[in-house]
Each structure stands twice: as structure tokens, then as C-alpha cells.
Amino acid sequence: GSLMYASIFGNVSAIIQRLYSGTARYHTQMLRVREFIRFHQIPNPLRQRLEEYFQHAWSYTNGIDMNAVLKGFPECLQADICLHLNRSLLQHCKPFRGATKGCLRALAMKFKTTHAPPGDTLVHAGDLLTALYFISRGSIEILRGDVVVAILGKNDIFGEPLNLYARPGKSNGDVRALTYCDLHKIHRDDLLEVLDMYPEFSDHFWSSLEITFNLRDTNMIPGSPGSTELEGGFSRQRKRKLSFRRRTDKDTEQPGEVSALGPGRAGAGPSSRGRPGGPWGESPSSGPSSPESSEDEGPGRSSSPLRLVPFSSPRPPGEPPGGEPLMEDCEKSSDTCNPLSGAFSGVSNIFSFWGDSRGRQYQELPRCPAPTPSLLNIPLSSPGRRPRGDVESRLDALQRQLNRLETRLSADMATVLQLLQRQMTLVPPAYSAVTTPGPGPTSTSPLLPVSPLPTLTLDSLSQVSQFMACEELPPGAPELPQEGPTRRLSLPGQLGALTSQPLHRHGSDPGS
């Protein structure tokens, strides 16, 4: 009898404990919600809404976190579960008819179910419309201010047509639940991603989709105040780019002037030289400038040598048109050559190039014969006009050509200096018209024969001689050997007369 009593008592207590286990969990969670309300000092109306929603959600799901349970299964099984949970929507909604099984599984994985109690606001006026909503159960109302403009029910759709707008718009009203509602919502990016994977279904979906109420604000059109608020930074940046392009296009129409201050000032006329910023005076940081632009901040801005204009002085008759350009485009679109090309026009420029290279940067340069637009006047290309890779490749080509020119210049200078040193070592320090008596009659020769300089066969020296023939050397430049009979510069000019005159010897006659 005691054994029977113990078994009955144990079973009854276990049954009672299981009955009250759900209630215990409910009270535990309710205590957490109330502690949250007390800690954050939530006001009474919002506090009442929180408690009511918790009670309804507990009775609806029995305190089970559906998302946590669903995430515990593998992905393939999750797709089947989501397809079952959203079967009513996918079967009865017209846009989803005719979709393949794979497309429906992908869509079912992207849908999220939302449960809303009465009085809950789903979308506020001015919120971004980031999702498309399908009503599965219940009814909602749409308000503009305090005026109800629409009441939607089961199988209705609200949001915005995503295929017509590249960016999400703003809501033009509040969406509030009238009863307990079940909503299926899919985010904008998720829907577009699935439709991109199934393009054959995309056309059918957009053609058959009928949005019951379009929440997009109709005033959000390009150029409206609301649109400016939504895309303020983007609009200002776009206007700045367009104004920069218009100014650079105007600059290219004036090829007669070359400016070292950047493309923003290349198009300024002579009357605007004294102004601080020219056409860019209202925004000094709008356009890029070269490193020399920092010198323009000092006094005497109108007389600054940074602004270059072609000189009108005539060229000498024998002067060549100019050196070879550094870039391939210089032959086609440049009416002034790079300062480095002028360094190779003569030997005198070679000796004085490194010492006063900055001073020569603004000297007169030889002109190319074609009066085409200036290379320095070409505006900086924006990322939309020329690819970045093209600019980098041009810079690399320019750097390689500069290296080759520097190597060639160093070799030419070394060769010229070597020839000058050899000339100085071969010439005796001094010569006299009267020579010392020699031991015999073989001493009648006034000077030792001097062998002429070897013929220069280097390509670089031939180019130097060509430049010497075309360029007029300055007075202080050293002379180079030329073709024809060679003669030492330090010898007297009348050596031929010395050989014809008898030598005057000093000596005593033994017979006297």
C-alpha cells in the first residue's frame, strides 16, 4: 500500500510541476520586462504597450523563439521550412505564380514574418522605404497627419515599386495596425538579389506586381527641396563636378596662354591676372594647382613670374625650331616645348642647366612650328573623362623618358669634360720664339709635331656638333674642335714665318 501511495504521489506532483513550468517561465520573463521598464524609466503609455505586446506574443508563440529554433537546422532544411511557412503567400499572390521551385525557395529564405499588435506603428512618415510588405492577416491604416487616407487588409501590398527607383524613397505617411496583424516583408536588397539570379522571372514579377498603396513621397523628385535634403551631399558634389568641367572646357578654348597655377587659371584673360583667384576666387580649394602655386600668395601677385606667355621676339635665322618633346602628345598638341628640351639645344645650356634650372624654367623657349593648343594648358582630366590607368601609364612613360634624357646628358657632359682635359694635357705650358741651342744640326726643328685630335665617332658628340652648327654659343662658352686643319689655341699665330727665318745662335768662333 505504501508503494502504491508513493507512486501516485510522485506522478501527481510531476504533472503539477509540468503544468506550472510554463507559468514560471512566463513570470520570469515578465519580471525581466518590468525590470527593464523600471531601469530605463519608460513612461506609462509606452510601458503599457510593452506589457501588452509581451503578453500577446507569449500567448501567440508560447514563449518560443522561432528564429532561434529555425537557425538550429541546416540551410537546406531551413529553405523547406521557410517554404512551408510562406506557402499561403507564395501560392495566392499573383506576382509569385509561375516561378520555379528554386526561385520560390530563394524568396522564402528572404521573407521575414512580423507580428504587430493593435496601435503599433510599422512605418513612420519620413522613414526610408527599405522593404516591401505583404499583409497575411489583420488590417492596417495609413495616416497623413491625423487623416486616415487608406485601410488595407489581407493580401494587400504596400511599399514602393523598387524597379522604378535606384534609391529608396521616404514614406509619405504613417502605417498603423488596427488589429493583430501578420506581415511578410522582404528587404529591398534581398528581393533585387533574387531577381538578379532569376532574370526570366524578374520581368514577370515586375509586370504582375500591383502595389495597393504606394508609400513613396511624390514630392521626392529631382530638383525638389525634399530631394535635395535626401541627396544633399551627392547633389552638391555633382554640381561641383559639372562646374569644374564647364570651366576646364572654357580653358581649352584659349591656347595662347600657358599658366603654371593649374587648370583653373589657364583660361583667365590678361585683365584677371591681378585678381586673387581668377574664376576660382569664390572657392580657392575647388581646383588643383601645381607646386608653384604656393608662391602666388606673396605680395606682387600681378607681377609674379609664374604666369607664362609666349615671347614675341624673333628667332635667329640659324636657330632650330626646338628640341624633341618629352611626351608623344607634344608633337601634336603643344605650341611651347618643355623646359628640359631647351637644355639640349647647345653645349652652353648643358654647362648651365643644373646651376640655374629654376631660373631657366621661365626663360624664352623655342617654339614648335605648329600653332596647336598648349601642352601645359590642357586641363586636368576628371576620373569620369580619362581612366586612372591611362594617366598612370603616361606618367610612367614620361618618367622613363626623363631617365633616358638624364643618362644621355650625363654621358655627353662626361665626354666633353674628358676631351677638354685631354686638350689641356697635350698642350705645353708655354712657348717662346727663341729656342735653346741643340747639340747638333738636327735641332733646327722649332717644335715637335703635334698629332691632331682623333675624329669623334660617338653619337652623342655628333649631336653636340649638330647643335653647335645651329645654335649661337654665348661669349663665355668653350669652343669644341671642328672639322678641318686643327691648330692649338695656345700656339702663336705666325708659326709659318718662324720656319722661314734663320735661327740666331749665340757662340764663340775658336779662330777669332
Rank of each mutant, 00 (worst) to 15 (best):
T130A: 08
L132C: 03
Y133N: 04
Y133W: 14
G138N: 01
S139E: 09
I142V: 10
I142T: 02
I142Y: 01
R144M: 09
D146T: 11
V147R: 10
V147D: 13
V148C: 08
A150G: 11
I151K: 01
K154T: 13
K154H: 08
K154E: 06
I157G: 02
P161W: 03
L162P: 12
L162T: 12
N163W: 07
L164Q: 09
R167C: 08
P168Q: 08
N172H: 12
G173Q: 04
G173F: 09
G173E: 03
I186W: 01
H187S: 10
H187W: 01
R188D: 02
R188I: 14
L191W: 01
L192W: 08
V194G: 02
M197G: 04
Y198F: 09
Y198E: 03
F205V: 03
W206P: 03
S208H: 13
T212W: 01
N214D: 04
N214C: 09
L215P: 01
R216H: 13
T218G: 08
T218V: 14
T218N: 07
G223Q: 09
S224V: 11
P225Y: 08
T228N: 11
L230E: 12
G233S: 09
S235D: 12
S235Q: 10
R236Q: 10
K250S: 12
E253V: 09
V258I: 08
A260S: 08
P263N: 15
G264E: 09
R265W: 10
A266W: 07
A268D: 08
A268G: 09
P270S: 14
P270H: 04
S271M: 11
G281H: 15
P284F: 13
S286I: 01
S290A: 05
S290C: 15
S293Q: 15
E295T: 15
E297L: 06
P299E: 07
S303M: 06
R307Y: 10
P310R: 10
P317L: 06
P320E: 10
P320T: 11
G323F: 14
G323M: 06
G323E: 13
G323D: 09
S333E: 07
S334P: 13
D335F: 07
D335L: 06
D335V: 08
T336G: 10
T336A: 11
N338R: 12
P339V: 10
F344H: 11
S345N: 08
S345Y: 03
V347W: 13
S348H: 08
N349M: 03
F353Q: 07
S357K: 04
R358K: 04
Y362Q: 06
Q363F: 13
L365S: 08
P369M: 07
N377W: 13
P379C: 05
P379R: 06
L380R: 13
P383H: 06
V391D: 03
L395W: 15
A397E: 05
L398K: 01
R400I: 15
Q401N: 06
L402E: 03
R404S: 04
L405W: 15
A414G: 06
L417D: 03
Q418R: 11
M424P: 10
M424D: 07
T425F: 11
V427P: 03
V427R: 07
P429Q: 06
Y431S: 13
S432F: 10
A433M: 10
V434P: 10
T435R: 10
P437A: 10
S443A: 13
T444L: 07
P446C: 06
P446Q: 09
V450S: 06
S451E: 14
L453I: 10
L456R: 09
Q463M: 13
V464K: 07
M468R: 13
A469V: 13
E472P: 13
P474G: 10
G476N: 12
E479G: 04
P481A: 10
P481C: 10
P481E: 14
Q482K: 05
P485A: 03
Q494T: 11
Q494G: 12
G496M: 10
S500A: 08
S500M: 13
G507Y: 13
S508W: 04
S508L: 08
D509E: 08
D509S: 11
